[in-house]
Simulated assay, not measured.
Amino acid sequence: AVVASTYASKADALKVIKQQLESNGKGVTELAQKLTVGAQTTEQKKELLTAYVEGLGNCRLTLSQTGYRLRPASEVIRSAYGTEAEKAALLAALQQAIGIRAEIKAAFPKTEDKDAAGLAAVSGLFVTNKGIADIQNFVSVVDLNAQPIILEKVSHVVSRTDTLRVSDKTGKALADGYRKFDLPQARGGWASYDGRVTALNTTRPVNLLLRYLPDEAYTYIVKIDAGMKPVVVPTNKKIENAVGIMEVTVKKAEDEIKIFRTLKLKKQLITPTEYPAYYRLMAEWMDTNGNSLLFQTAK
């Protein structure tokens, strides 16, 4: 990214925001106390205050569209809506009003010169943001004094074990005595959304920054009743390249089949030259033929 600023530093630019933050008024304190009545822990209080702020209406004006101006917290409360920046300022004010340490953070593009970015480069103001925490290796996160901040990451590791019973009463009945069984996947897994929307095309002319690095492992224990004969099951497969690794391992026994499926990506920023490798991993990981089992009732 190429950025330019009329401010001497990020700190000077952020003063425009910082000087607008008022000390907590009586109304803010009373609201914070009212919202957290009955909460026993700090985390519970944070959750209640966050739920209140998230429940306010959203004004989609950006910082630049508002002239880098924030309405007072009391006005945001009165009007019951706010911009992203105003809601961040309100959340910080509510938490501070009941003794919780909170501060507003700003995200900038990462540049070689740490001061080479002004207000126009701010991609967001927030108190907590899991999405930015996941990509903080690719952005610059600072407090309103322009001091670097390290955000706590949330684990995206998926480890799931499912047991399936194969009988002439389970699965989906097909013609000629065949029955189909689909292997379950976690609803929040990579294949449920990210894998699909990031692999819609076979070529990509620009960089792709993934939301996070998936690390998923699924174990399926397939219990087979007498009289059921496996016709189609996944085969052992392993694909490893510069982007990551995808592996399927199948272990068969007389009355049981164990299937292990794993996906682990190593690169969060995928360049156009690396995209074919990423696309191949996704095509294999989301191949429906690898997620279905076909059995036939023995005659």
Rank of each mutant, 00 (worst) to 15 (best):
T288I: 03
V233C: 08
V231C: 04
A253L: 03
T203S: 15
D215V: 14
I239R: 02
G227A: 10
E247G: 04
E274H: 13
P272W: 15
L265G: 09
L208Q: 14
Y279A: 10
N291H: 01
T202K: 06
T203Q: 12
A217V: 07
T219I: 15
G188I: 00
Y218H: 04
W190F: 10
V250R: 07
A226I: 03
Y220K: 11
I245E: 12
Y212V: 07
V250S: 09
I224L: 05
D287W: 02
L281P: 00
V248N: 05
G195R: 04
G189P: 01
T249I: 12
D225G: 09
D194R: 00
I270Y: 15
G188E: 04
I224A: 09
Y220V: 07
T273Q: 15
K264P: 08
K266A: 15
D194V: 13
L209Y: 07
D255P: 02
Y212A: 07
G244E: 05
P272C: 15
N201V: 13
K223Q: 12
P276W: 11
A277E: 14
R261N: 05
P276V: 10
E284K: 05
I224H: 09
Y220C: 09
L200V: 02
R204P: 11
I259P: 01
T271L: 14
V243G: 11
N291D: 03
K229F: 13
K266P: 09
I221N: 10
I257A: 11
G227D: 10
G188Y: 01
R204F: 14
T288D: 01
G290M: 00
R261D: 08
M286A: 02
K264W: 11
G290V: 00
K237F: 04
